[in-house]
Design a binder for these strands. Sequence first.
DNA 1: CACTTAAATGCAACGAAGTTGCATTTAAGT
DNA 2: ACTTAAATGCAACTTCGTTGCATTTAAGTG
Lengths: 139, 139
Amino acid sequence: MNITIESTKDLLRSRKLKATPTRLEILSALQKRNSAVTFSEIQNICNDTDRVTLYRTIQSFVDKGLIHKAYQSEDEVHYALCSHNCSSEAHFHNHLHFKCTRCKKVTCEYLEEEVKIILPKFQIEKVDITISGICKNCN
Amino acid sequence: MNITIESTKDLLRSRKLKATPTRLEILSALQKRNSAVTFSEIQNICNDTDRVTLYRTIQSFVDKGLIHKAYQSEDEVHYALCSHNCSSEAHFHNHLHFKCTRCKKVTCEYLEEEVKIILPKFQIEKVDITISGICKNCN
DNA sequence: CACTTAAATGCAACGAAGTTGCATTTAAGT
DNA sequence: ACTTAAATGCAACTTCGTTGCATTTAAGTG
Ligand SMILES: [Mn+2]
Ligand SMILES: [Mn+2]
Ligand SMILES: [Zn+2]
Ligand SMILES: [Zn+2]
């Protein structure tokens, strides 16, 4: 499916969000790349948008199931696009996050077979896996 | 091996850290419990120590391989004791971190068999696993 | 047990990051 | 075009962590 400005507007509207210029910029930017964005990158993309608006935009995107926190480095949070199974009701992710030490990009990666983790006497609800190393492109 | 005030003092000194009252309090508290501590818990333990000192103490403990960041919640970082393989040279951890949704405790947990993660074309350097659920005690 | 000294502490000031209240603007339905 | 709730921008504020510097203290030395 092709991604157009109109389809991005529709996506926003389908989540009860007004299709404003700033939101379109951020969402389109994320759709065009294959990696997560940090807040400062978003600030660069939206040069003349107030930072308060950017904070609120990110929050609304997370609330509506459009993006999710992919990685938290020392100082910065990286946000990645959600797939279609996320909504304003809940997020559903069954993937891990990869941080490339060379290109610094953070990506969502899907495993061919699910990892089996056994912790006797524990009840496992959510497993969060973050890997660092050299990504496919840099390798 | 029994943990005494003297053995804790020796541990600090062996890492080239002066055995001050605040440091002893924090380190002993961590040795007595089996779960990680947050900064605010440390503040409660050391009521009348300046917060700047606490920040610097945590930093020096991490630098010297005495504690490590075990879990980062929305707003708080949880620190756990390191095992003997960590030093001022480097940290070596091959365990995961568990956050109990019931008692809220964060613990370091060791797996019986290492998880095998396959990401074709990637070079994996470090795998970080965080699990939430119900811990052994609460279950 | 003094004496010395580098390390550790406390205090004040600062800076960055995120939040809140409120007035103004704007997207989108009628 | 008109209406209205949502979104934005601005200012003020809080919170968290850091830095510089003067003072105190742990621990080694004779
Ligand atoms: Mn992801
Ligand atoms: Mn741990
Ligand atoms: Zn890379
Ligand atoms: Zn528990």
